[in-house]
């Protein structure tokens, strides 16, 4: 199946007609936050007034993706998000406490559910087709992608809009920091991977893709497969998953032109990548994408946008020694907290 269009709001200048990652944004501190567009030109101001930041990011990228693909009525809208609309959830819960559960404003409650973004896109389009949201930690986007692929394989849908979205809020960041996820001392995202330590930098983003079973002749890339696995017990088990994933698609690891990995500068987290880069991925050019977008549970959606862009461009922009190789196959390997691991394989059309 094919990626007809992709749209991405991230901590880099990735939305709209920006040149592809020509100038990278540097962040020093604990988090990378999204560079957001002027939404009034993208969403009806009457609707924007009820939308929190994550909803605006999701709706803007989803609608942009549809616009790029020239599709007004997708056959399905599927999203993946680990935390959902946290700002609205926080507002609603805080008001419940402050007002002793009395006279509560309905809007934050209505907008706080995890499926708000897919629902808002459907409402805007008056789209009554399949609409689903997957909430499964670090595998949320992969689950959404797998659902989209199954719909396309089964022939029940011809065009599916699929996206991964998560946001940072002050409260969620404070809680996750207390759990040891983030660095205790400020660091630059450009140096994050060069100075390994305890914890990483937080990130956020919204990336949507228009997938189709039929080639349009103008597609970004082809999706060869997606696979996720849970809490592998050893590096050998991870290697086995990678080998099986490639073997079932009749692909040798040497055929992979570029591997995009989820190194995030956290010593505990990066051990797995280090071992794979030493052996399995030793001879493959690599990009560590989390220096661009930070760590969040649906960051693999950013990685897929990056992979699709690299394939569309035909050359690897970030690895000097390989920039003359025409990219044919790009493998994304990511794990979130060493709990949810995933593989996504894209190829040139």
């Amino acid at each position: 199946m094919y990626i007809k269009a992709a749209s991405n709001i991230s901590p880099q200048n990735t939305f709209g007609n920006q040149p592809y990652l020509s100038e990278l944004a540097e962040y020093t501190g604990e988090q990378l936050t999204c560079i957001e567009p002027e939404y009034k030109t993208l969403i009806d101001p009457k609707l924007i007034r009820r939308m929190s930041r994550i909803i605006k990011m999701g709706v803007a990228t989803g609608m942009d993706c549809l616009h790029q693909a020239g599709i007004n009525a997708p056959d399905a809208i599927i999203t993946g998000t680990a935390y959902g609309c946290l700002a609205d959830t926080n507002t609603f819960l805080s008001k419940m406490v402050q007002q002793n559960e009395d006279a509560l404003s309905p809007t934050p409650f209505i907008q706080s559910t995890h499926n708000t973004i897919s629902a808002q896109i459907a409402l805007l389009l008056q789209c009554h087709q399949y609409n689903n949201t997957f909430v499964n930690g670090g595998a949320s986007f992969e689950n959404a992608l797998l659902d989209a692929m199954m719909l396309l394989y089964e022939g029940t849908a011809a065009n599916v809009l699929v996206g991964g979205i998560d946001e940072i809020t002050a409260n969620s960041h404070a809680i996750l920091k207390r759990m040891g996820l983030y660095r205790r001392f400020p660091v630059s995202n450009f140096e994050l991977l060069n100075i390994p330590g305890e914890g990483t930098m937080a990130g956020e983003g919204a990336a949507f893709f228009m997938l189709s079973q039929e080639a349009s002749g103008n597609d970004w890339a082809k999706i060869e497969g997606v696979s996720s696995f849970y809490k592998p017990r050893s590096i050998a088990e991870i290697q086995q998953h990678i080998n099986t994933f490639l073997l079932t698609r009749h692909i040798d690891i040497n055929e992979i032109d570029l591997v995009i990995t989820g190194n995030n500068g956290d010593l505990k987290n990066d051990t797995v990548y280090g071992q794979l880069q030493q052996y399995d991925f030793a001879n493959i050019p690599a990009i560590n994408y989390k220096a661009l977008c930070g760590e969040y549970p649906t960051s693999s959606a950013f990685a897929m946008w990056l992979a699709a862009h690299e394939i569309k461009n035909g050359v690897c922009s970030f690895v000097p020694q390989s920039n003359q190789i025409p990219l044919k196959k790009v493998l994304i390997y990511n794990h979130y907290q060493n709990i949810h691991h995933s593989l996504i394989l894209l190829s040139a059309c």
């Binding site: 009457k46 009820r50 009395d102 006279a103 404003s105 809007t107």
Partner: peptide
């Protein structure tokens, strides 16, 4: 002003608060 049913609920909350 173009308000809708959710706004009506918000106005009820406003009067109460």
């Amino acid at each position: 002003l173009g308000l809708d049913s959710i706004d009506a609920l918000e106005l009820i909350v406003l009067l109460q608060q």
